[in-house]
């Protein structure tokens, strides 16, 4: 897509979308949203970027390899927090009992492990969607060669 309007608009919009995505991810324990929604928003920004410029520009920002590593990493954060709770001596995915600081309800840094987990989920979802987008687009490219 070589349209100059789209490029300009998306160049302006993308940072805001990403910021919003991060906000939704990080406030997962306080307001509606969370890892999944935020991750989807974040991924949408990257997809928008890649669509309005082109694929190579998109992969320059976030390469296929990096996104697939992040994909595993996000899930590992989730599972790792659960296992950490076990190591700290409570049940799997235990939170307060495992000694994570709960903070003051309503603050950003509250909810103990939940925030970290949400963050992991966000990374996972975003990178998964980006990876999927890349592989679908690349698949399309192959068949045309």
């Amino acid at each position: 897509m070589e349209d100059i309007i789209v490029r300009y608009i998306s160049r302006i919009i993308v940072p805001f979308v990403q910021l919003y995505g991060l906000y939704v991810i990080l406030h997962g324990h306080l307001s509606p949203g969370g890892g999944f929604s935020g991750g989807a928003i974040f991924a949408a920004s990257m997809i928008l970027y890649a669509l309005s410029f082109n694929l190579s520009a998109g992969t320059k920002k976030l390469s296929h390899d990096v996104s697939s590593v992040l994909e595993s990493g996000g899930a590992l954060i989730f599972a790792g927090m659960g296992l950490l709770a076990v190591l700290l001596g409570t049940n799997f995915l235990g939170n307060r009992a495992a000694g994570f600081p709960l903070g003051i309800p309503g603050n950003l840094f509250s909810g103990g492990a939940i925030m970290v987990i949400t963050f992991g989920v966000g990374i996972k979802v975003a990178s998964t969607m980006i990876t999927l987008f890349y592989s679908l687009i690349e698949g399309e490219g192959h068949s045309h060669d």
């Binding site: 969607m129 999927l132 592989s135 679908l136 698949g139 399309e140 192959h142 068949s143």
Partner: peptide
């Protein structure tokens, strides 16, 4: 997503 990727493969 998975189904779509399968369709892409079928298309290929």
């Amino acid at each position: 997503a998975y189904a779509l990727s399968l369709v892409v493969k079928l298309y290929r």
